[in-house]
């Protein structure tokens, strides 16, 4: 069953097209990657899926809910982690998770959600330190925990390991694999094609606001006789 369907979606900013007829679908429990260079339209597409931007034309459904007409229902089942996202600096990690959990549950359920978030973040005693004092890796762990703790049906993660060191990036990729194994659909965007190749079940390559290729990393490499996705992308764009 498709958890996410993007059908012929266009987005223009003041007449300038940013997304130019993008279509793809993602199955439940799948890790799906959107790859492409900067400015290709990845973030705009993710923002439209997350109900942050209005669609100029086309249709997006998340678990059957239309993002344009049922945005409240969509927000209850998705979790979006923007690129370079931050948290409220004057709150502690625990207070931040508590604040976010408050939108999904009350009382004991919210408390359980926070405890689950604290477990995912794995920050030890630092969970009670102010977010302002966190390193980039700690901040990203906290934000991933925030995104995952409400057990969303679809997690949308934009440049999820951007700027992280090797160990932090490795651990975060591991967390993503674990949540997908629990049935959560994950959509990630990245211009790090090696990461996408390691992590994703399927990928869509976007260039100039259009999907130029879509398939499993193995299929795409085979089709273009390439050793990695980066090579596939270069060959696809030149073609």
């Amino acid at each position: 069953m498709n958890a996410l369907v993007v059908e012929d979606v266009y987005k223009t900013y003041g007449g300038r097209p940013a997304v130019n007829g993008v279509s793809f679908s993602v199955e439940e429990g799948e890790i799906f990657g959107l790859i492409g260079p900067n400015g290709a339209g990845k973030t705009t597409t993710l923002r439209m899926i997350s109900t942050l931007l209005r669609i100029t034309s086309g249709r997006i459904t998340v678990c059957g809910h239309d993002v344009a007409t049922e945005s409240d229902a969509v927000r209850k089942i998705i979790s979006y982690l923007p690129e370079d996202a931050g948290a409220y600096k004057d709150l502690t990690g625990r207070a931040y998770l508590k604040f976010m959990a408050g939108f999904f549950a009350d009382g004991g359920d919210a408390e359980k959600m926070v405890m689950s978030g604290i477990g995912i973040a794995d920050l030890g005693e630092r969970i009670d330190s102010k977010v302002d004092t966190y390193s980039k890796g700690m901040m990203r762990r906290l934000l991933i925990a925030r995104a995952i703790m409400p057990a969303p049906k679809v997690a949308i993660l934009d440049e999820v390991t951007s700027g992280l060191d090797v160990i932090n990036a490795f651990e975060i990729r591991d967390v993503i694999r674990q949540i997908a194994a629990r049935g959560v659909t994950v959509v990630i965007s990245s211009h790090n094609m090696f990461e996408v190749e390691m992590l994703c079940d399927r990928v869509a390559m976007i260039n100039d606001g259009k999907v130029v290729l879509c398939g499993t990393p193995g299929e795409l490499k085979g089709r273009f006789e390439a050793s990695n996705l980066e090579e596939v992308f270069v060959k696809a764009v030149k073609k």
């Binding site: 109900t51 927000r75 998705i78 979006y80 923007p82 931050g86 600096k89 939108f103």
Partner: peptide
């Protein structure tokens, strides 16, 4: 300004809250 600078606004706007 802080919400935008720290990119917390995007997250807040995707929460299930009007």
């Amino acid at each position: 300004g802080n919400e935008k600078e720290n990119k917390t606004l995007e997250t807040l706007l995707t929460m299930p809250v009007g």
